[in-house]
Design a protein around this nucleic acid. Structure first.
Lengths: 206, 206, 206, 206
DNA sequence: GATGAATGAGATTTCATTCAT
DNA sequence: TATGAATGAAATCTCATTCAT
């Protein structure tokens, strides 16, 4: 019936998206052809255009569905009653774990979208900005609560924080940093230690 | 005579490179055509191919000549007798000033190459790695001298440090961060404050 | 349905090949553009590339499908129980008739491939060699059976034989030899008379 | 002085022509660039255009200076008081020896001009025709003198004769026939044996 | 004569997208 | 929904030829 059919359609769409991730990660967005995606998904050429308006839209969809999850997670973390430092740790942790479980997705997001915001106009910039805003909010509240150094601009701190994470992921993606299980876990602490060691004023014993 | 002609040729080559920077910054590497570069430079189409083997080679040249300057600067800074923290400050300062004076060049390097290491294979990764290695060396020596926290992996710290800088530049490039004269100067201190505040153990008064 | 569509596709492919023959014959392979072929076939530019990887491949296909037919015919003739002289006559006859019915195809094969083996590498040389080998075999057997002069190298005789045919066709192609119906028929006999009159030792009455 | 200067100029021209032969033989006329010729000759790019109007003219010159020598030789041979068969032998001999001494020149003439008469319009066809005419004349006179079979069209015989020679050379050029010193000498006899064994009626002992 | 930088028309090829079935 | 043939704009790159010095 209709529902089953709708489900089947959704599955095909998913199949195409998943295939696209693998192809984008492997060949890069610009170097791959729509037919590569179709081949990888095992569907006909034109079917990609049945589900998506364009090649760009495939990447857009991929990016947004992931980015929105992240933004939701950040929002949830932010809503919890935790010290700012622990909120940031949770964020790093979530992103590093995302890379651990789906490196291809993260690779695509970082390599093809985040840094190439250029080509993708303002659509994604707005979504990206949202995440920075949330992080800046966490920093800001940390400052008001007295646990963070108030002399640093919160938005600026958010860029530093996210930039550090992204660069470490980039290091893994291009095999410039070791990425064993233990390395991933350590990285979380390194980043927080580095960033919060500086921001954190609560630790007065220092 | 021959010398004058050779000079003129070198000038044309430079003219093309300079035009390419503007075009890449404005339209992006993938979205611009070789003819756009030629037009911007005010030379004939084919002359670009007289001086460069391909569009890629233009970007390669642009990236390498700039990156090598930066690596040289880092090396020079590293050779000076300064505390690790001040060495890092000098690096941040140089990069931020580079952006101040030639934002287009930095935009191209960051947006089109550094993060798109993907498409450009290992040539650039090696050059990029070199810079990380030098920075890691500075951190490492800072640790041995007792001014830096020895618990953080130097290479990792280098990624965090450079990632922070790059993200701030990205923020300026896409107009997500304020970039007045004062903002640029402040940024230098913010970055050092954030990163070194954490790494720096010498400042025991904290 | 699928079958009908596949048939239509095969037809289009053939349409392109047939158009290519006319264009190559008229303008020459090097002087024509792929768009000339598309125009002649009445299809869009890109369709040529849908069916063939390159302009070269169009010529390759054209040559091979024709050359293979000829090789098959030679093989069939060779398998029949006939005097060597009559086998050679059948070959001449087949080639001359091929020219009569499809002068363009023969022109392309002779002018653009056979003699330009240069540009087309070893792929075609091998196919060409095969034909020479078969002809040499016929001569060789003729010698063993006593009807052909045993003092002439069979492979060499094959080159002489085929060279004679090809040159006559070249004469027709460039309008240096008369090519009325009768001329074509006579040519078959002239060639055999000339070549076999010399090879043939069975006719001792001479 | 003027004479010496004119001589130097002629030498440069020769240098370029000789280089062109090597380049055309190696890469083929269509696949080589004018700069390849200049490089091979060790002269500047533009100098080729000082001495020749175009790339085509270089090939034209090369072909004509060689072809005219051959036509002169044929004419001289034809003027001697010799049996037709020996005249043909002298021609074969001259051509085979030309290949022996300057294989590149013959390769260029056969591969790039004679068979590609196509692209070069009627200029060369006329020159080529002249040679055929002379050979046909020899055959024709042989028939009138009673030494050649009168039933074969002289022009046709000329094509057969020259086609046989050219194909053997082609066999050598593309390494399909053995080309040791002895092979070259034998080939001369093979060709005459094959062609004249058929044409020659004087040898009534057969 | 000699040089090689400069020109730009034109060729091949790619591939996102459309559309008939 | 599903297919993949068909379209054609656009991009890169080549290279014969010109020309200023």
């Amino acid at each position: 019936m209709a529902t089953a059919r709708r489900q089947a359609a959704a599955d095909k769409r998913r199949t195409i998206l998943d295939a696209a991730v693998r192809v984008f990660a492997r060949q890069g967005f610009h170097s791959c052809r729509v037919s590569d995606i179709a081949d990888e998904a095992g569907v006909a050429y034109g079917l990609v255009y049945h589900y998506f308006d364009s090649k760009d839209e495939v990447l857009d969809t991929l990016f947004l569905e992931r980015w929105n999850i992240m933004v939701d997670v950040i929002r949830t973390i932010d809503g919890q009653d935790l010290p700012a430092r622990e909120k940031l740790y949770s964020i790093v942790s979530f992103i590093v774990d995302s890379y651990r479980h789906e490196p291809d997705v993260m690779k695509v997001i970082i390599v093809e979208v985040t840094r190439a915001a250029n080509s993708f106009g303002q659509t994604h910039l707005r979504a990206i900005d949202e995440a920075y805003g949330l992080i800046a909010g966490i920093v800001s509240r940390g400052q008001r609560e007295g646990s963070f150094n108030p002399d640093v601009s919160p938005l600026f701190a958010a860029f530093t924080f996210y930039g550090a994470i992204e660069q470490v992921l980039t290091g893994w993606i291009f095999d410039m940093l070791p990425q064993g299980e233990r390395d991933l876990e350590q990285a979380k602490h390194f980043i927080i230690e580095t960033i919060c060691g500086g921001l954190d004023r609560a630790d007065s014993s220092k």
